[in-house]
Design a protein around this nucleic acid. Structure first.
Lengths: 202, 202
DNA sequence: GTCTATATCAAGATAGAC
DNA sequence: GTCTATCTTGATATAGAC
């Protein structure tokens, strides 16, 4: 999915041979897109951030769209890694609270640039490429994982609760970003934590 | 605030003389910025949408930034108009519920383009101009109005509740937009309505 | 595989005729 | 005040040397 080349193994081998320039470019793209937005970011910006000469970018990505797609895939991978790590936590309520704690930890970044994935998804929805579908898939993956936790807590309205929780995060990200107030996310995070306790029938 | 010219009255007179081209341009800008995003929108797009020749735009707005500023001011005016209308409703809980109902009514648009103001605020936060401050002011105006309603309902935690409500709206807008599901906003809208009933001690 | 130099094109902005 | 034609800039993308 991330790799546009033939086999996954062959692609990985080729990438390591190359000295990880492709990875550097993707990581740089994720960060710069978050900070400046996709539209305002030039390929020169990404090249500079990834310490790769501009012309060389086109060896790895034929178009800017392909680089954006790779960035979305990177977010997808990050989410998979995160949920896998959280799945090691024994209790479903504790897993949800750890998820929220992670969001609150990032409040300074959120105040400056918004939710890394939410702002990207919002921007992709205004573009002509089909990447908005990829963004929807990532969002659904998160919703599905959260829903599973609520189901495990015995909640019959697990899906609605998942939507409520993720929407609360996205919304407080928008407010925290617009008002530049990280404290707002800390407060709302506490509120969400209490709500998990209530729902888990603490 | 909206008018960059000398006096407000003189400005209004001048605008009506001109046949409302400035108003057409601002209205077109608000709509096209919402649908395409500020960065992806060219002045040619706005000129076409407002049925004004491209070169003429520069008679009314010296730069694209000034047009963006006028669009933000227009959102500010719309909000003032909305809250003034809602203030006619006798009960504070009913006022809040009417606000929510208005959001839900716009769910098809939200599914396609997101919250008209939220997506703009998110985009402005990635720009170099100082318009993010103007966006913050509008957001605060909405928060203040909502807070006043909760205060009237006798809630000591009025501010936190206001943040919760507005964040819930912004968040469900992001999800509704990303997933292209207007039904999601309808469901969450119902949930918010019930919450108002609970908080008002129905 | 890597990188420089450059072609191409689109968008903001302006000059100046009407 | 209005609008056309055009200048200027900067970003995507490519050609081709190494």
């Amino acid at each position: 999915m991330t790799d546009s080349e033939s086999g996954a193994t062959a692609g990985a081998a080729a990438r390591s041979r190359r000295g990880g320039k492709r990875e550097r470019l993707v990581a740089a793209a994720v960060q710069v897109f978050h900070q400046q937005g996709v539209e305002k970011t030039t390929l020169a910006d990404v090249a500079r951030a990834g310490d790769v000469p501009l012309g060389n970018v086109y060896y790895y990505f034929k178009t800017k769209d392909q680089l954006v797609e790779a960035a979305v895939d990177a977010h997808c991978d990050q989410l998979t890694t995160l949920t896998a790590r959280l799945d090691a936590v024994p209790d479903a309520a504790a897993r949800l609270k750890a998820l929220i704690a992670g969001w609150v930890e990032q409040r300074e970044t959120a105040a400056r640039f918004g939710c890394p994935f939410g702002t990207l998804a919002t921007e992709l929805d205004k573009r002509d490429d089909g990447l908005d579908q990829a963004a929807a898939k990532v969002m659904r993956t998160l919703l599905d994982w959260v829903e599973r936790q609520f189901t495990e807590l015995g909640r019959p309205d697990a899906r609605a609760l998942a939507v409520e929780l993720v929407a609360a995060y996205q919304g407080m990200s928008v407010l925290t970003n617009t008002l530049r107030e990280p404290g707002l996310m800390a407060d709302q995070g506490n509120r969400l934590q209490s709500r998990i306790d209530d729902l888990a029938g603490r």
